[in-house]
């Protein structure tokens, strides 16, 4: 086995410190070391978007990052969205109301992609939403209800 490297990072506001092999992918680190299995692994080459998390506020592919690279950084995963199971994030609530998921495998990655998008685009047009989601593949929904959910989440309150 190779020498282990220290990684100390913040995930959803909580600090974690572990010793890992350098080849351990961030996606696997989150799921296996930290038991945060909300982040899903689809293709492991960056095209499906299921593994998308926020690194220092920016959506990135966790399957294309080594865990050691996240040392000293702040991550947000889908587990960081809801305050509690009874208190969903407005985006989650909108997906619930508009049937924006079926199997849910792509959903976490879509959520993490949408968070900064909605922060930057308060009233997105449908084509802007579809473009923003072009890096996330969904096998179940045909995307229409996902778009509906985003429009619903972004509606003026």
């Amino acid at each position: 086995m190779q020498p282990l490297h220290k990684v100390r990072l913040t995930v959803n506001g909580q600090i974690f410190e572990r010793q890992v092999e350098p080849r351990l992918l961030l996606s696997d680190f989150l799921r296996h070391e930290l038991s945060l299995t909300g982040t899903h692994v689809g293709c492991e080459h960056g095209v499906c978007g299921a593994c998308t998390v926020l690194l220092d506020g920016q959506p990135v592919r966790s399957c294309l990052l080594l865990a050691v690279q996240s040392d000293g950084h702040e991550l947000m995963t889908v587990e960081g969205l809801a305050a509690s199971p009874d208190d969903l994030h407005p985006l989650q609530q909108a997906f619930w109301e508009k049937h924006g998921l079926q199997c849910g495998f792509c959903t976490a990655g879509i959520m993490m992609t949408l968070l900064p998008f909605l922060a930057e685009h308060e009233q997105p047009a449908e084509h802007e939403i579809r473009h923003a989601l072009s890096g996330n593949i969904c096998r179940c929904t045909g995307y229409q209800h996902i778009v509906d959910a985003v429009l619903h989440a972004a509606r003026p309150s």
Binding site: M1, Q2, P3, H5, E21, P22, R23, L25, D28, E44, L66, V68, Q69
Partner: peptide
């Protein structure tokens, strides 16, 4: 679908 082992440096 995981990388083979390597020595890692972060200069």
């Amino acid at each position: 679908m995981k990388p083979a082992p390597f020595a890692y440096h972060a200069p």
